[in-house]
Each structure stands twice: as C-alpha cells, then as structure tokens.
C-alpha cells in the first residue's frame, strides 16, 4: 500500500434542517484530508471546520465504526456505503478517492426511511418488520433447553448464519431502484426458515413480515441484484428466493 498523503476534496452534501423542512445539496471544500483516514473521520474533520466557522455541523449516523452495528449509512457518489464492496461506510477509506475529487454524500432515499436531519434517516421500519415476526417464541420460565440439543445439518446452519449476518443497515433499500426491502426481509425470514426452531412459526412469520414490509411503503423486487452487490455482509439473492418459496407455501396453507 502506498504511503498516506493529504488530498483536497470538494463535497456535495444533502443538508436538511429537520424532517419537515425541504433540504438541498450544499457544497463544501475540505483541504488536507489524509488518505489514511476513514470516510467518517473525514466527515468529523469537516464538522470541526464547520464548528470553527460557527456553522451547523453535518448530522450523520455512526456507532461502532468497525462495520458490525449497521448504523452508518450514506449514499456516496451514487453507491450505498461508497465505492467499494463488502463494507459499511466506516470501513471506507479516503485512499479510495483522489486529490480534487468531488464527492456526493446523500441520505438513504426511501419513503419508508424518512430523513430526520441532514444524512440521518429513520430506519425503525426495519424494527417494525422484525417485530412482526422476526423471532422465535421461547419459553424462558426457567427450564430453557440448550439450543444445541436440537441437531441442525451443517449446511443449513451455515446458510442460516450467512443470512443472520445481516446488520439491518438498509443499504439494500438505498441501492434498490424500487426502494425494496426484500433482501433484508429475505435474510430475516431465511435465518429462521432454515433452522428447526424457526420452522414452528414459519407460516405466520413470513406472512406477517411481508405484510408489514408492504405497509411500510417499501417497493417491490425487480431482481436487479443491486442489493446483493451493495450489501456489506454479502447477503445472497437466494434468501429472497427462499422468502418467495416460504410465502408461497404459507399462502397455500
């Protein structure tokens, strides 16, 4: 890897005061950004500059900054989590950009993810989908059975684990031309559908979760496959097909 250097960049960032105000793209100039810094550190640097200029800093979501919490979002230069694959925005580094670049930074765009402020969106629609069926009912009255006492074929366990890797960041919705949440819901349905513990409530789960997904105003799946490519956790389209099968089975019951 080449040594870190400093670059000067132009930023075009969506600024919106609050949920009800009309936002717009604003232009900022930021000098001396180290290519070794992460994208979020670059935004921290911008915010320091704005604070020094007595201006309102840019609001953006972030939490763990190690690619696991799913909190950071950002649609960067036309791609969810920016120009790299298999990463969240906190894992994106400024070495992906060149001196003099203009970088567009926008919030996730979806009717179901309304903008709260600047680049921060409300992703609680995902929580409501989860609450509609993304769980298994377990008796916790004191005689809980060890999960490992039920044999699970290794192949299924691996597939369920891959589906469960979904961090609910919403990149699938953001990148889908239809603002569809099928990859998220597909992953959540699949992680249970593949395991014996999940089979018990499989029928109600898929019907309720899909109904909630539709009610939230997410779009439909056109099978473009963009979500699979932009997903930081590499969730496969196979999960959407599995959800479609599960839904068909459940509808015919």
């Amino acid at each position: 890897m080449s040594a870190a250097k400093n670059i000067n960049i132009n930023l075009k960032i969506w600024r919106q005061k609050n949920a009800s105000s009309k936002g717009s793209m604003e232009t900022y100039k930021l000098d001396n950004v180290s290519t070794a810094s992460s994208f979020l550190e670059m935004l921290d640097q911008l915010n320091e500059q704005l604070i020094n200029e007595k201006k309102e800093p840019v609001a953006f979501d972030h939490d763990c900054r190690e690619g696991i919490c799913g909190m950071c979002s950002l649609y960067i230069n036309g791609r969810a989590h920016g120009p790299d694959t298999g990463i969240t925005t906190c894992q994106l580094h400024m070495r992906m950009f060149n001196d003099g670049d203009t970088i567009y930074i926008e919030p996730w765009r979806s009717k179901a993810f309304p903008v709260i402020k600047d680049l921060v969106v409300d992703r609680s629609a995902f929580d409501r989908i989860q609450q509609a069926g993304g769980f298994v009912s377990v008796n916790t009255s004191g005689n809980t059975i060890d999960a490992n006492s039920i044999p699970v074929p290794k192949v299924d366990a691996d597939k369920a684990f891959e589906a469960a890797a979904c961090i609910g960041c919403g990149a699938c919705v953001a990148t889908c031309k239809n603002g569809s949440a099928m990859l998220f819901v597909g992953a959540k349905v699949s992680q249970y559908a593949l395991l014996p513990q999940g089979k018990v409530e499989a029928t109600q789960r898929v019907l309720n979760m899909v109904r909630q997904m539709d009610e939230e105003g997410f779009g439909n799946c056109t099978n473009t496959g963009a979500c699979e490519i932009e997903c930081p956790k590499g969730i496969s389209l196979e999960n959407i097909a599995r959800m479609n099968r599960e839904y068909l089975k459940a509808s015919l019951k």
Binding site: K12, W14, M25, Y75, N77, G78, R79, Y104, E106, R109, S110, K111, A112, T175, K177, N178, G179, S180, G217, F218, G219, N220, T222, N223, T224, G225, A226, I229, E230
Partner: peptide, 23 residues
C-alpha cells in the same frame, strides 16, 4: 408502487451494480 417508494431521488447514481435491462 416502486416509484412511490422513493419520492425523492438521488442527485448522483451509479448504475454499476445492476444491468441496464433489469433497471
């Protein structure tokens, strides 16, 4: 429905993650 699901579009889009036909 799909158009309604994204009332405000992006200022910049990059089509590299899906095929022209599929979009």
């Amino acid at each position: 429905q799909n158009k309604k699901a994204r009332p405000i579009g992006y200022a910049k889009t990059d089509g590299s993650s899906s095929s022209l036909a599929s979009r």
